[in-house]
């Protein structure tokens, strides 16, 4: 039994491997993009809207509300990044209950890639908000001695993000597999249902953490600007 979808390789040419991780990722991407396209090509700003538009509006409003609560800023700049993280991870985890579907989030490479994207996004948002100099200066706050720890913190939290998601999703799959061996009837179904909940929670945690990191990089600017304004 393969625990990670990375191990399932459909096609290989040298270092180029088309694994189940990539295939199911593309499937997810296609599903998300196509459904979004189908719904958003007929949008209406009248009181009567389609069910799909209603669903998307509800999801987007939920994102906006969450972003506004966490960052205390306008949600527009952060919405696509955080929203995409949540949708990708959430849908991937939900579809885990579909027989034959291997969630890409169950592979360490995917979670590492997502964590890395957060790792890259944080300085980008920070620099966009503060400017390069001010952003880099915050690594020296409150003292230059803190610089190594701050850098270690940056890396460790990225690693934690990746491993947390991977561990949770993989554990779900592993538990389901073990339970199938021990008690093949009924109990795995309950565990599958439970994994739906943990999957959504993990997606939420990942998104919120990414948001917190980004917010912390931009909020410093706010707190430093305030005394100047006085």
């Amino acid at each position: 039994m393969d625990l990670s979808p990375d191990a399932i390789i459909y096609w290989q040419w040298g270092p180029v491997k088309i694994s189940a991780t990539l295939v199911f990722s593309w499937l997810l991407m296609a599903l998300l993009t196509l459904s979004s396209y189908l719904i958003t090509r007929r949008l209406s700003s009248s009181p009567k809207i389609s069910a799909g538009q209603n669903l998307l509006e509800a999801i987007v409003s939920f994102f906006q509300r969450q972003i506004r609560e966490v960052t205390q800023q306008e949600p527009e700049p952060y919405l696509p990044f955080v929203g995409t993280l949540f949708l990708y991870i959430g849908l991937s985890n939900i579809l885990a209950i579909v027989p034959g579907f291997r969630p890409p989030t169950g592979s360490l490479t995917t979670t590492a890639a997502l964590a890395t994207s957060v790792f890259i996004a944080v300085p980008i948002y920070g620099i966009a908000a503060l400017g390069l100099k001010a952003y880099l200066r915050q690594y020296l706050q409150p003292s230059i001695i803190m610089l190594p720890f701050t850098i270690i913190g940056e890396f460790s939290r990225t690693l934690a993000l990746a491993v947390r998601l991977f561990g949770n999703v993989m554990s779900g799959t592993v538990i389901a597999a073990i339970l199938l061996l021990v008690a093949p009837l009924f109990f795995p179904v309950v565990m599958q249902a439970f994994s739906l909940l943990t999957g959504i929670i993990q997606a939420y945690i990942f998104g919120i953490l990414a948001l917190v990191y980004i917010a912390s990089a931009t909020e410093i600017q706010e707190s430093r600007k305030r005394p100047k304004e006085v």
């Binding site: 491997k17 949008l43 995917t110 890639a113």
Partner: peptide, 30 residues
């Protein structure tokens, strides 16, 4: 697997762009 890692990073960026184009843009506008 570093290839898959890079590919997934790229995939995520592509998805980000696609959803920004087909989901967040139109929905927030409406």
């Amino acid at each position: 697997d570093w290839f898959t890692f890079i590919a997934q990073l790229v995939n995520f960026l592509i998805l980000l762009w696609l959803l920004r184009r087909f989901l967040y843009g139109p929905i927030t506008r409406v």
